[in-house]
């Protein structure tokens, strides 16, 4: 019964919503190539289930709104005072048990329906069983950047999460375990699932099974300090081949290229190595992102800017240009050192 009514209401609400969202996100507010992380454009089971549920709830609350606001509008127009001279008092009515009972009982029924559908969805998403084929990723939040560990694959990626495509025939969901190294953060990629917080000393879980390849953006959803705004998230949903290739690359140690030995020397003699890891070198710091495969990323500093050599150089010169208040200090390198380090970093594919 519930399910049927659910579907029915959904149908009506969906077309309306789609239209509104389409207008809102595309026609009216275009600003160049858009990538809007709309919760009404889901691409993974948890997000689509939530989307369906939201349409159902929208329809019910919309119905309540139209009814009650209609009543208010009627009362305003029907019972306004006509003319200042009309001073006689209207009939005084103090209450009515029947009517009051009616408007207590009907909301109770609505609440029951809303609660049951909601509870069903909570259990469906939160307690979903984990299939054998699932990929495990441990996400660690840091002040203003993300760390992604793939324990079974031996990979430590940064800021840009790569996950395989999942389809009903070949389910390959990704199960995330979420932790924090410092303060609270929240993992939120609206098109893939709802958000969940990353909390020190408290392990959380989340799963996604993206159905379309592509790039999905999101960002940290819990205020975590100065640069909370630039703790952006990018999730790349790869086809099986792409994903395998990416994994293969990430598993390699850092490229070692003698043409940039000076740069590497600067990197290893300045404080860089205290905070950053580059596998195969003396640099094993854990405070900042792992730079072993820096050039495999499209952006720098969790999306603060695009990953181009100029930006890389400027970032190293003074991170505040892109991310004022980030926890990487400006290292006061000379121009020459900067060029060398940039050249070195640019080889870390």
């Amino acid at each position: 019964m519930l399910a049927k009514c659910f579907r029915c209401v959904n149908c009506a609400a969906r077309s309306l919503c789609l239209l509104a969202v389409f207008l809102a996100s595309h026609a009216l507010f275009a600003e160049g190539p858009l990538s809007t992380p709309s919760i009404f454009a889901p691409a993974s089971t948890p997000a689509s289930s939530i989307y369906e549920l939201s349409l159902f709830v929208l329809a019910i609350t919309g119905g309540i709104f139209v009814t009650v606001a209609g009543l208010i509008a009627y009362v305003i127009f029907r019972f306004r005072q006509h003319g200042q001279d009309d001073v006689s008092e209207p009939a005084q009515i103090y209450g009515s048990t029947q009517v009051e009972l009616a408007w207590t009982v009907i909301p109770v029924l609505i609440v029951v329906v809303l609660f049951l559908t909601t509870a069903r969805m909570i259990f469906a998403i939160q307690d979903a069983p984990k299939p054998k084929s699932a990929l495990d990723v441990t996400v660690v939040g840091h002040q203003f950047w993300w760390e992604f560990n793939y324990p079974k694959l031996g990979i430590r990626a940064v800021n840009e999460l790569h996950v395989p495509l999942s389809s009903p025939q070949d389910p390959k969901p990704t199960f995330l375990t979420l932790l924090s190294a410092d303060v609270m953060h929240s993992f939120w990629v609206p098109q893939l699932s709802g958000k969940i917080d990353l909390i020190p000393n408290h392990v959380n879980n989340l799963w996604i099974d993206p159905q379309h390849p592509g790039l999905y953006v999101g960002q940290c959803g819990q205020f975590c300090g100065v640069q909370h705004a630039k703790m952006l998230l990018r999730v790349y949903v790869d086809t099986p081949e792409q994903f395998a290739a990416w994994v293969k690359n990430q598993q390699q140690p850092a490229v070692s290229d003698d043409r940039v030995a000076e740069g590497r020397h600067v990197f290893e003699t300045q404080a860089c190595m205290n905070c950053h890891t580059v596998t195969g070198t003396a640099a094993t710091g854990r405070f900042g992102p792992d730079l072993t495969h820096l050039m495999s990323r499209d952006t720098l500093a969790s999306g603060a800017t695009t990953n181009t050599p100029e930006n890389l150089r400027e970032w190293t010169r003074n991170p505040d240009t892109y991310k004022p208040g980030s926890l990487m200090p400006a290292m006061q390198l000379s121009d020459q050192q900067l060029d060398q380090v940039t050249a070195y970093l640019a080889t870390l594919r």
Binding site: R78, P90, A91, Q92, I93, Y94, G95, S96, T97, V99
Partner: peptide
Amino acid sequence: MSEGVEAMSTIA
């Protein structure tokens, strides 16, 4: 007075 009001009887 409208019918609606009449329906809500007053209790003395």
